[in-house]
Amino acid sequence: MSKYLLIFYNSIQRSLIYRFNTFSLLFIQIFVFGVFFYLWSSIYREGGQIGNYSLGEMVTYYFLVIFLSLIIKADVAWRVGDEIRLGTMTTILLRPISYFGYTFSRLAGEIVFNTAVYFSSFLILFLFLKDYLNISLNLEQVSFFLVSVILGTAIYFLFFYMVGLSTFWFGFVWGFNFTMSMIVSFLEGAVIPLDLLPEFITRMSNFLPFKYIMFTPISIFTKRTELTLDLLIIPLVWVIALYFISLIMFKIGVKKYEGYGA
């Protein structure tokens, strides 16, 4: 148990060293948010409206998309893919440590670090905009939101862990990872809120795990949805399912990997 904790701490240390990375991302994403803020604000003040979203809901939606992207997105697929491709996975396999645990602890360290940094800045930004956006929060809503975010993060992590594992069969991960990130970002509602898209897409997204990464937590936060338990149970089921599929993938893939004497 303690070895994973150590990896976790090392990961945080590493993030501290690469702080330029963290802070420049923060700066850019605030800039990006600024542009979206003006986009929606100027549309609404000219009398327009996007679907049945109020200005507050629209701005908050993109606010949260950007904030959650900063926290959730860790380079799982890249790292795993490179470790397979370059053969550095071998050193981990030779140790009494589970590869999944190792990857998870490493990324958990980064996610925790990122959350600490980004949460403070976004909190300040949020407090500034709260009144302008007409947002009200209560405890039940926030707790639901937090659990939903954690589940969404887990789904994201597991899915891209599997994308990384696909390197066992493809040899490289870049193109596939890029494509998948695109598709997932669309289906999780990061480009446009899912309920503004044509019905067939909305229906399709109900059968996929991606909407629980962003769209669901955001809808909970903006109170666009009732706080029902299935909002948490369905993603939980997905997490468990993805976890077991990833275990199987790893087992089969590793045999292939070791077959090359890597």
């Binding site: 000219e46 996007i50 679907g51 480009v191 446009i192």
Partner: peptide, 14 residues
């Protein structure tokens, strides 16, 4: 797609 969807709800941005 973004532009198409947004302009599905209005016909003028600034």
């Amino acid at each position: 797609i973004f532009i198409k969807v947004v302009f599905g709800f209005l016909n003028n941005i600034s």
